[in-house]
Design a protein around this nucleic acid. Sequence first.
RNA 1: GGUCGUGUAGCUCAGUGGGAGAGCACUGCCUUGACAUGGCAGGGGUCACAAGUUCAAUCCUUGUCACGACCACCA
Length: 884
Amino acid sequence: MSEISKTYSPEDVEKKWYKTWEEGKYFKPRPGKQKEGYCIIMPPPNVTGRLHAGHALDITTQDALIRFKRMKGFEALWLPGMDHAGIATQTKVEELIFNEEGKKRGEYSREYFLEKTWKWVEDYGGIIALQSKTMGASPDWDYSMFTMDEGPHKAVKKAFVDLYNEGLIYQSDYIVNWDPGLQSAISDAEVEYEEVNGNFYHLNYKVKDSDELIEIATTRPETLLGDTAVSVHPDDERFKHLIGKIAIVPLCEREVPILGDDYVDMEKGTGCLKVTPGHDFNDFEIGKRHNLPIINILNKDGTLNDYGLEWKDLSCKEARKGIVKKLKELEVLLEVKPHRHQVGHGDRSKTIIEPMVSKQWFLNTKKMAKDSVEAVESDTTKFYPKGWENTYFSYQRNPRDWCISRQLWWGHQIPVFKCTSCDHQWATEEEKPTGCEKCKSSEIVQDPDVLDTWFSSGLWPFSTLGWPDKEKMIERKFDTFYPTSVLVTGHDIIFFWVARMMMMGQKFTGTVPFPKIYIHAIVRDKLGRKMSKSLNNGIDPLDMVKQYGADAFRFTLAAGSGYNRGINLDPERIGGFRNFVNKIWNAYRFIEPHLANAGKELPEELDHHERWIIGELNAVSKVMNESMEEFRYDDSCSAIYQFVYDKFCSWFIELSKTQLSGEDAEAKAQRATVLRYVFRKVVALLHPMIPFITEELWSFLKDKEEDLLIIQDYPEFSKDNEFHKDQEIMNRFIETITGIRNLRASVNIKPKEEVPVELFSDDEELVKYYSENLQNFRDLAKVGSLKVSDKSNQRPGKSAFKATTHTEIFLPLEGVIDLGEQIARLEKDLKKTEKEFLKYDKKLNNEKFMSNAPDEVKIEVRENAKEFEEKLNSIKENLQNFKS
RNA sequence: GGUCGUGUAGCUCAGUGGGAGAGCACUGCCUUGACAUGGCAGGGGUCACAAGUUCAAUCCUUGUCACGACCACCA
């Protein structure tokens, strides 16, 4: 035998099969027996991205699904793509230009920058797609889309113009999260709050024409330069009398009104609030209520502008120091109390966010959000696991208008034009309109801002399928694949992405973009911590693939994926599953020499063991189908693991050895046939999880005319293949063999040494079965001589003895065994069994139980009681016997 | 402050109103003809705590404690 190596080496196998699949166009959707499409849209990774553990899980769960559905006979499309990632990419290219040319934004033209960015995308972008291939991802790469491609760009324009003309997109001066690093507005969702150490500064503001002072607490003293009011609660007895008077803001000596406003919390701070509508969200609202002027004290880069007085051009942080010093000198500053509070940071830039008023584009999402909530409430779209609905609802039930404009260059430029001669402003899908639609002037300019990246992401499920271009929709089979079948993603982007797709999908296609949403876990390190650069606890998927093979890594991720929220990934576990993959390899090595002997079809007449393994195979097929359908990869993996390892390798292969090396040619051929049959099903069942080794083994197992495993039928459950009786007997047989082995070990019999065994049972079928399978006892438990009889017969004397609920097992080894030890062991067992028996017996004697419990429970308890009574009696009698 | 979630074997985690499970780790024995990335056998848990519902609670209810995620607030 063998050219086949003793251990499986993944590297060459993986390369070979990926190439074969890709070149053979096996990832292309092809119509199958289901006559239906099945489509998963891959969450498009950032064009700047590198494969990390989260992607690996994303890929594994989606790829397993798409491979499963492909084998089930669906026209399966996994549509890959790439996101232009406005902020991330812009930042990267700006850095590049700065490093190469020492120039900053504003020192080169928009055209130059975009040229550079496209070049960057071409040269370095999309590495992640190549990396995905090492994981065995099977999307149809020919279908791939980039969010900046012409198709999605047209979709973005169409969507924008429609929403604009409907009045849902509007432009407004409003307070937004301003990222001074990016010099752009960002959406609420892109702000992350971090706790930092700060201070409460207590300041005294003078009240005009009075000796009174009003004490105010603030964490940001520098913003007083933008104060346009002081506010107290209208019912606050302490300050009520000040309402209507004028306060004087220190430093700038600005006279501002003292207001009464319900928003003020009497309990907080000093009960007096300085109002800075230009730089605080709540103050902005107060300002609106009282028609206060808005003063912007900041430049776009976060430094102070002319309102900054002597601190002009300093950053807020710098200015604060100077201002505090000055306030102290002026004796305005009363005290400084340390205070921990949350400060917003840009999720990409990590710079401190300044609330700032500026002119931005907003999308009113109220109606769309409501529709998207209803779709989930009515189960038109279902979350798996269901709990994530709450997260989704919490965002969608209180939608704030979405700030969709970004002061960046990389992205979809807002398709709004303005006429410089008549001031008319309009949105159009035309890329380069020639003149004003009203006055026909050719003096027109396009809005310089670009759209939030998530705007184009929201259209992704249908823009990738050709929408809104009728011809493209036919070409890309919109009708077959939309709505898509399921969305698979992590919970961190339920709001960013899932909610937006739900809104846009319903808005523009009239239907939800997917009926199911599977939210997978977040990958963490083995201690449950998030993977991060600072902890240096990241696990590189490429490393894992290299070390253990893609299959083992995939199986580990799948086995850890169900309805859980986190996967704690420990490389040691991958090692464990690498061993499993190797086990499969070696199971094949065992079967291989017998393949030539094997028939194609399962024989008509199966023997007991064969019926048993077919029955177990049937059962595991059922579990696999059901669990995959519900995204319970964990259940799928443990079911197939157990079947392969335990049922197939430990028992069926072991039971087949004697047969296969025997003289009976017919029996040999039959067993070879069954082994081949079962193993072909096993690799098919496993293929979605571990595609590489299964494809490799299939190439040895398949008939010449058969195609690759990737498009073979997935094994199905069949009523004809249920063999409950054989499973029951086999389970008892396994218990008996284990019992014999246990006894051997307990009296230190060497593994090679044969022992005599006597079995007693009142189960006639079992007695018959034991008698007909003497050879199996020899093979599996080194039984030299076996005596089987019913319990009416005389038991042997001093022996190693064990009772099961159905069989008494004796190893008559007088002289070898230590009787005292045996008795001690039996007494321990007796106690345990007694306890178990009493548990059931007590119930049977409990009137309330007997009158309340359902019949099937009573029957079961009665049976259990009987079984344990039998075991109990066996132990008691024989113990007595040994003692006498 | 709110929402959701978690607490089961040394570790990582499944699970069920009626007999406590898996993988890894651990112990002992085995260089057995597929596999030492292996085989056989084994030890180990008051199912966080308390009360309640029930004939029956690890599972349902309430409370307590601990932990986590997200959201909001933050003068």
